[in-house]
Design a protein around this nucleic acid. Structure first.
Lengths: 350, 350
DNA sequence: ATTAGCACTCTATCCTCCCGAGTGCCAACA
DNA sequence: TGTTGGCACTCGGGAGGATAGAGTGCTAAT
């Protein structure tokens, strides 16, 4: 994007003003609020140019300008400067996240909650992608005839379990044997390398009769597969209703309707993550603005996520969905700080 | 409430019409839609009477009448007749609930989801109240030095677990001893009879040194206490935005704001449950209308819940929050049917 | 390249007017 | 005593119209 300095400043100013006032900004008010050493007529020329480039647009002929998606994009990519949070703000976030919890999941939920409260927007987090973590323990406990609990401890310090159905006449001892065999041969294997065949091979060493054995192995396999399924935590949807950007009931309904399908949102976050990886992006955050988001009803939103790390190979995402008319520099630094604290806390679990 | 037959019919008709049209209903349109064999002037007299009794009210002088909370209450208590669902509707619900799941929790979530979809309102369920269930198994598994997993199997077929911190130098064998001792002496005890003292007494029989022992016992106790904590599942909040009753953004915001605090809603459901028990109510459902609900922002809502039973002594609630302008007879029978199916499915887990 | 000036545009707001559905009340009636 | 037709009155909501004000694009001068 070829923009001379003043045009950059004008775009910057338009975004800033529009974000803070929620009113289309005109050449005159631009002069009033900022110290451009030129006349409003000059700015009008610049603005016409910026409009021509598709960076700003007019809601209607005789109104001021508002940034277009492309304008926000330019702002985010090249114009804004991210400022650190004040010590006070940092403290506030630290206090909320540091509540002692026993499980990583709780920690992530905490962070999500904190993020929604500090930004005032919808926050979300994905559970850690556990495909690359490996099995440290696997135990099958008899619960009652026909029912057992598969407990798995993963390298990332995560514990998963699943109730499974097993043949009625299997006894404690047989289950222990199977459990031991699986654990022995799968310990240390990354989850994404464990297949049904791997599990069945592992079970062969036991003397449990074939058909019974097979069912248990299958259930154990299913439990392992379920362990790396992704969850999403969404919070603060109702906050969107307080924003002037969604004061039209129709927009608000579409937005919350889409957000209510958490599976769909999770899928989209995954897509973003994968796209970023393919591009080899080294940004510490990902951002999608307005129409760039392919989810229904999020045209007026921006979607910002960062990646947290539970271990070197196990990570997840945390971020917010807010109006695209947001204070990007602030929100990004909030997300970034929450992520940083989250990473620090996570070290305690691994 | 002393009402002659025609006045009852008038109130009935007003509620019906208002529910279906969302317009204040006047004497004239009442005559048109129903076969009262009297003139509109007569109905006007009746309506004045009903208003005097506080059963209906006018939004403003020259408008028709709408039912007051008291009017809905009278309608629900004495006027409406609950009709069975059609076989088709029943089938639809059965189909959705019958998806095979391995855990009671999943089943409850399913039912909640179904209820929100069939009613089009917010649905909710409380997790089973497990205070009266008893411990069938308790195992403590070492995860890694300093960390263990307490797994509990309860009489209601529910499995609960919790990661706890334990002293670093405790070894597998010691944990097994403690685990065995607790299990041996607490098996068969209802959760609400287990206290810290009970657990500590149980642990005394082991030869594990005092201070180490004590911490593990405390953590085990905490895990047991956490097992009977209540959860609430809320779903379909966004559906409220599609209802004309919440077309004012302010109302919608207040409503969703309150619903976002699920702990508060859970507390309220508990209150309702306790109140119903104290009254020895034998209704199969509980209902609160408008201002009867003490939660902020629910003035225009009705809250209907039924009680499901996991076992004789373990139960929970399931129900909906909808606009008070709802088809009560229909919604109640939907809840009732979902509850019935839920009870049937639950039998398979116990 | 910048600026002052000007005619033009469009929305948002406020007023006013008026329709119509609905009411309460009264007098007459069975 | 309960029911009815008639009538004057009320009030919200929608339609129409005028106006202010912020903003624009264009032109001609600097």
């Amino acid at each position: 994007m070829q923009l001379d300095n003043r045009k950059k400043e004008v775009l910057h100013a338009i975004v800033d003003d529009y974000v803070s006032t929620n009113e289309p900004v005109g050449s005159k008010s631009l002069i009033e609020r900022h110290s451009f050493n030129v006349s409003s007529a000059t700015l009008r020329n610049d603005m016409a140019e910026l409009e021509h480039l598709g960076l700003i647009e007019k809601p209607h002929t005789s109104a001021g300008r508002i940034p277009s998606d492309k304008g926000y994009r330019e702002y985010v990519n090249s114009l804004m400067t991210i400022e650190e949070l004040t010590p006070k703000e940092q403290l506030e976030i630290e206090k909320r996240i540091n509540t002692s919890v026993d499980e990583v999941t709780e920690l992530i939920k905490n962070a999500t909650h904190t993020l929604s409260e500090t930004t005032g927007f919808v926050s979300l987090a994905m559970s850690p992608r556990l495909k690359k973590s490996f099995l440290k323990q696997l135990k099958i406990l008899m619960i009652e005839p026909g029912k057992a609990l598969v407990v798995m401890v993963l390298s990332a310090g995560v514990v998963k379990d699943k109730v499974v159905r097993i043949p009625n006449f299997l006894n404690d001892e047989q289950i222990m044997k199977i459990s031991g065999a699986i654990e022995k041969s799968l310990t240390g294997k990354p989850l994404d390398e464990i297949t049904l065949v791997t599990v069945e091979t592992a079970g062969k060493s036991t003397d449990v009769p074939e058909p019974l054995l097979k069912q248990v192995l299958y259930e154990a396999y299913a439990a392992i597969k379920q362990a790396d399924e992704l969850n999403i935590y969404l919070e603060g949807e109702h906050r969107m209703l307080s924003l002037p950007d969604f004061s039209s009931l129709g927009r608000a309904r579409d937005l919350l309707g889409t957000l209510s399908d958490s599976g769909m949102v999770a899928g989209y976050v995954n897509e973003m993550e994968n796209a970023a990886r393919e591009l080899g992006s080294d940004d510490s955050y990902m951002i999608r603005i307005g129409q760039e988001i392919t989810l229904d009803g999020l045209d007026d939103c921006s979607f910002i996520t960062a990646t947290y790390n539970l271990t070197d190979s196990v990570s997840g995402n945390i971020g917010v969905i807010g109006p695209k008319r947001m204070l990007y520099s602030k929100v990004i630094s909030q997300i970034d700080f929450v992520k940083k604290k989250l990473n620090e806390e996570m070290k305690k679990f691994t």
